[in-house]
Amino acid sequence: MSVDKFKTLESTAIPMPIENVDTDQIIPARFLKATTRTGFGENLFRDWRYDKQNNKIPEFVLNIHKYSGQILVGGKNFGSGSSREHAAWAIYDFGFKVVVSSFFADIFKANALNNGLLPVQISDTFLDEIFKSIEKDPGTKLKVDLVNQTITLLATGDSETFDINTYKKTCMLNGYDDIDYLLSLKDKIEIFEKSR
């Protein structure tokens, strides 16, 4: 499956200063019965967004109109728990292109990268600064530059670099997917199998 290309993004951001957001919250198990990759955005953070009667919970950040944008800013240890890739699909399908946190769980990070959703890991201090900035002004913008691997808080000009391995960076910049690459290695894989 090819993914959308990503180069730079300038956007407002939605703040979720909650630590250890696990993938059961991002997309509850009862929504995993679908057999396609689309439509999961509707159920993103379902049980935090809607109550039992399917009414929007007004205090939840995704229901507060002054917050909007294509960047989700989450507390430490974002995406822990189940390997469900549906979590990355739900976040992307909802409209986010980037998730920012000071710590990501491994499987979620890989799933995000495989779906054109960029996980940007920054320091605890900068994360805190971003949360405070958005709280002060929900119109605050962030600029994410994949080429230079920087994320900048436009209001202050403060920025940090983030890590991403060269291979994954190339994939995201060009919209390549791993399967095409692996299929191109068919002969090498067969040689490996015979050597054992």
Binding site: A110, N111, N114, L182, I189, E193
Partner: peptide, 22 residues
């Protein structure tokens, strides 16, 4: 180890996966 659906597809297609060594 556990993997996401895209990686399941990779393994079904090529019996290989791309993983950074932990």
């Amino acid at each position: 180890f556990g993997v996401g659906t895209s990686e399941v597809e990779m393994v079904l297609a090529t019996q290989c996966i791309m993983q950074p060594k932990p």
